[in-house]
Design a binder for these strands. Structure first.
Lengths: 196, 196, 196, 196
DNA sequence: ACTAGCGGGACGACCCGTTTGT
DNA sequence: ACAAACGGGTCGTCCCGCTAGT
């Protein structure tokens, strides 16, 4: 007569983290209190503090989750582009970012937004952000190296500018023209191609 | 025999706004309470609420100030570049942004940071941000038109990406390589110039 | 070049008292702050505190004014009923109370309402209320004596019940049936008249 | 060996409501702050806001409690008068009101007092008051019908006047003569009885 | 592992009545 | 007549800890 685990609802930790992700991303970290999270996750306070020592721990877990999701997302995109021409693949990757920014629930880059609320660069939360950025920059640089860019570090830095610009602009401006500009931007920035 | 107004300390409103600017920019809006602002500004609570109806009003005033300062800053830079070649002037403008991002007290773009804490796009605070962005994009587009860019709107969109990327990256990454990449980025993005 | 007093708007003290009367009666004493009164009266704070030492002083003045107005009102009604049969005059007086309670801006008896906000029976505000009630009861008793009531004190007490009931009920219940009941109530309560 | 729930001290919600009832009734709603209530109830603020979403919610609960108490009180009185002559029972009921008004801690009618602090007739607090009054009036009318009153609605309206007069006067005037007048008042008001 | 409830105390924004100086 | 100052008050929310019970 006991409910099997497989039939039970998502375990408490998952529910907490999912709820926190939704609320933190949608409304900001400081704007969402623990009480609201536990209420919407349907768990008791003690349960929350059993799984997360403090709110900041939860914020870290939230960003860790975002980091992993982003890696999986980009990995998937790149896998689907396996046969494509390298330059084309890179462009498609940035277009995918634009697509992401065009979704109705889009609310900016979780990392950039979190950084705005955690000014102290030594804060653990910031470390996740730093790690995510390093990972992405390395990925770009490796791709550029493969692609034969004579200055892959430099181009990677520039592509990072574009990336941040996309994530910020898709939130603050009209995403339509911005997304339309992405392939052009990548083309201009990548080396060795005649223009116009 | 009465103290002249000019000799008195900065009037209350100024002190409040200056303090708020320093704290909001340095630590985030939600992270700074009214009590702290009035304490550091050395004014009474009633005085604060005499000058600003609500905290959001103060936030608006803070961003309005940032907007104006930014306009003045860019105007000054452009004035000092009056004789320069248009393409060069534009590059210098972006380099100046990088310089701004290299300052020790730099903490990101006040507008992007504020947007992260005000998710609701209809909020008055967001309107200041929207206005600032429109102003900058128009300025860029006009410059590009003067410069003979065949697609000034498109290039302006791309330059906005670069701008946001600079302001974000200068906060989240090592600003040195980022700043070094700026002239290159502008060169690549601007039209009609042979590359490499 | 000085504006003649006769040309000026209502003097400050009057404007303050009128505004306070409107707001205190309409929204309650505790619910209305000094700031609001001076704003709506269009006077400076210093002016306010020049005319009234404290808020409680203003409340007293407000109730004094209500007291006087009520006396004048009743005096006027009675004067207009000078020739009427005494019993009829008394009835008319209570009907007039009901009429007062039927006005759209009616919000209950100023004295009863004020007493609800000033529980301490020794408070100056309460003394105005006590005085008003004594005055009215005496007036009723004298009328009843004139009218030949063998127990004027007793009947006055009962008529006071009716009065308070009218002022309370006209605010809390539908005033229409209440007002219709008034002449009947007086008839039943007054002595020596056959019924039905 | 664990303390049974029944042996523990009164649960938080009860303590809060009891304290609020005492203070709201004794000093007025606006005059009593949340902080004072939680201090005297010995609960934490979070506990308070766990049980009552806002202060107004507590005020509603306070009046709901008064309403129920009053119903129980009157029901008890009527039960104890079960065999009595109907007219006598009604008189006794009003005498009981007077007794209530004669108690040292008496501070007026909780409903009338609350209405004075909540001018807006659409406010939830007012709805409790309206309900209480409808209930009482209906009870009186039913009694009068039973008693053979040819105009039970009219007499009920008049008895409501008396009721309000008692509750107001017992607070604002000397309760002694007022209480002495009650049986006489009821006699005069009830139909069909020779007088004097 | 999870729940309900409670305690604690600092802090959030905002308003109170009052006084002073220009 | 205005602006500023003052100190404490309003209601409400913050994050976090703890106990008792399932």
């Amino acid at each position: 007569v006991t409910t099997k685990l497989s039939e039970r609802q998502a375990p408490a930790r998952r529910r907490i983290l999912d709820t926190a992700t939704r609320l933190f991303y949608g409304e900001g970290v400081h704007a969402v209190g623990i009480d609201r999270i536990i209420a919407e996750a349907g768990v008791a306070k003690a349960t929350f503090y059993h799984h997360f020592r403090t709110k900041d721990d939860l914020v870290r877990a939230y960003l860790d989750g975002q980091y992993q999701q982003q890696r999986e997302g980009i990995t998937t995109v790149l896998a689907s582009l396996d046969g494509a021409e390298p330059r084309e693949a890179l462009t498609r990757m940035f277009v995918a970012m634009g697509d992401f920014g065009g979704r109705p629930e889009y609310r900016g880059c979780a990392f950039i937004n979190a950084a705005a609320e955690y000014p102290d660069p030594t804060h653990p939360v910031r470390q996740v952000i730093t790690e995510q950025r390093r990972w992405l920059r390395n990925l770009l640089r490796d791709r550029l190296t493969t692609l034969g860019d004579p200055a892959p570090d430099r181009t990677a830095d520039i592509l990072m500018l574009i990336r941040d610009g996309i994530f910020v602009g898709a939130d603050l401006d009209d995403p339509a023209p911005l997304r339309a500009a992405i392939p052009d931007a990548i083309t201009r920035v990548l080396p060795g191609q005649r223009r116009r």
